[in-house]
Design a protein around this nucleic acid. Structure first.
Length: 206
DNA sequence: TCGGAGATGGTC
DNA sequence: ACCATCTCCGAA
């Protein structure tokens, strides 16, 4: 395996959003090793994107992290009860990030099941297994991620993203992004990417 | 299997 | 007054 370095994250946001598909999120949580494959992403590009928290250079306490440059984690709370995990991209002037919308559990699934359902993995139905991490709020709950991880670096030892040694072919689909109907012309940008036919993708149409 | 509505609180 | 969501419940 090969840990992604800063030069990966500082690339163009659309490039990073697509390149993150098939990569593996690694997280050491309370001594437990969690690994999940990234299967769905969305790009958010402040300078030109009305759906983005940093649209038109907007800078607030919340969005400060998006101006730290590629390789940092941006986590915000949504709808009062859920969190969304983002990877900051490009340099420290633009305000760009990639939302991780869905992952596939690889290791530590036991722990994810406890976080999501307070139940053991072998008690879950097939549907509940898929439901562990097939959405941005769900995957944060499963991985135990909340605002405490906001601003963390992905270049350290306990939280990073890695690729397999052998590059596998991945079929990437592009669609409009989910639930940004307020964003005027930006709602039609096809900046959502997912791995074709992967069962953990949040929803197929769109 | 689908769609509507409620939960719930930080942000601006 | 929103809002990059999820779950439950009732209808088909």
């Amino acid at each position: 395996m090969k840990k992604l370095d800063q030069s990966f994250y500082t690339k163009n946001t659309l490039v990073v959003a697509k390149a993150l598909l098939g990569k593996y999120l690694y997280l050491n949580k309370d001594g437990k090793q969690l690994i999940a494959k990234i299967v769905e992403t969305e790009a958010y590009i402040g300078p030109i994107d009305k759906a983005c928290h940093t649209y038109n250079g907007k800078r607030t306490t919340r969005t400060d992290v998006m101006y730290k440059g590629g390789g940092y984690v941006y986590i915000y709370q949504i709808y009062g009860m859920y969190y969304c995990l983002n990877v900051v991209t490009e340099d420290d002037t633009v305000g760009t990030a990639v939302l991780i919308r869905a992952v596939e559990p690889i290791e530590g699934t036991e722990y994810m099941a406890l976080n999501r359902y307070s139940r053991n993995i072998n008690e879950l139905s097939r549907k509940e297994l898929i439901n562990l991490t097939n959405g941005p709020g769900k995957l944060c709950m499963a991985l135990g991620l909340d605002k405490r991880a906001n601003g963390d670096s992905l270049l350290g030892e306990h939280f990073y993203i890695f690729s397999e040694d052998a590059n596998k072919e991945i079929e990437v689909m592009s669609t409009k992004r989910i639930n940004i109907n307020y964003a005027e012309e930006a709602k039609d940008f096809e900046w959502r990417f997912y791995i074709k036919n992967n069962p953990y993708v949040s929803k197929v149409s769109g």
